[in-house]
């Protein structure tokens, strides 16, 4: 069986800056995987490469066995991504946004699933509100919804909880956990390490474009008995 995500020797330079210095990772189907690291470590660049938004200079990335460049249509169909930047199309309301996104993925009638996503993300009352009129946290939730319209088996969330209130954070994690239990592979980046500690079965720590630690959350924690993931993170970074 193909891994959910397979990344081999990926290098990406922006001019003289090396954003990814040869990253290799394998994530199995059904994992809840955490990608952690300080600002500028290369997390978003790695995720963007997986989603086809960035083109690596060398190396290969596959989603469920499909190369993200050679076999991009299949790879993209299997991947849902929540971008880190808070972006939206001001021309449409929430429901239109989700219907259009479904259409891009080749799905015509998607209203049942759209209703379910809206419900779970507490957006039902905002369904007919223009994107411009939503608060930042609500826009973030719509981004999560947009990533899920095509029920992708692999879901990548790039800091989905930045700017989202406590209650919704709980709701969001409940929903994502449920998706994970139903078999979806989840890849998460976040700077809230308690979240990662509670949710992720396995974690990669990135620093300056490299993976410097990769293990189950339990094993990483065991290296420093009694420490929180935050302490483990800080110590590993300073090694």
């Amino acid at each position: 069986m193909a891994a959910a995500v397979s990344i081999v020797d990926v290098v990406k330079n922006f001019g003289s800056l090396q954003a990814l210095a040869g990253v290799s990772l394998e994530i199995a189907e059904g994992e809840f995987f955490g990608l952690l690291g300080p600002n500028g470590a290369g997390k978003t660049t790695l995720i963007s490469s997986l989603a086809g938004l960035a083109r690596p200079d060398s190396g290969s990335l596959k989603v469920l066995g499909h190369d993200v460049i050679k076999d991009f249509r299949q790879a993209r169909r299997l991947l849902g991504m929540v971008p880190q930047e808070l972006v939206f199309d001001p021309f449409f309301n929430v429901r239109e946004t989700l219907q259009i996104q479904s259409g891009y993925f080749g799905i015509r009638k998607n209203d049942d699933w759209i209703d379910e996503i809206l419900e779970n993300l507490d957006l039902t009352s905002k369904a007919n509100v223009n994107m411009r009129r939503l608060s930042g946290g609500m826009k973030r939730r719509v981004l999560v919804a947009q990533a899920l319209v095509h029920k992708p088996p692999v879901i990548v969330l790039d800091e989905p909880t930045a700017g989202v209130d406590v209650e919704l954070r709980q709701g969001l994690w409940q929903f994502v956990r449920r998706l994970n239990n139903e078999g979806h592979t989840i890849i998460l980046t976040t700077h809230y390490l308690e979240e990662a500690e509670a949710l992720c079965g396995r974690i990669a720590l990135m620093k300056q474009g490299r993976v410097i630690a990769l293990d189950t959350t339990a094993n990483l924690m065991a290296a420093y008995p009694g420490a929180s993931l935050e302490e483990v993170f800080v110590r590993t970074m300073n090694q």
Partner: peptide, 12 residues
């Protein structure tokens, strides 16, 4: 605006 990602992510 960055909303270009919405048409770059799908398999079009």
């Amino acid at each position: 605006t960055g909303s270009i990602v919405f048409v770059l992510l799908p398999p079009i």
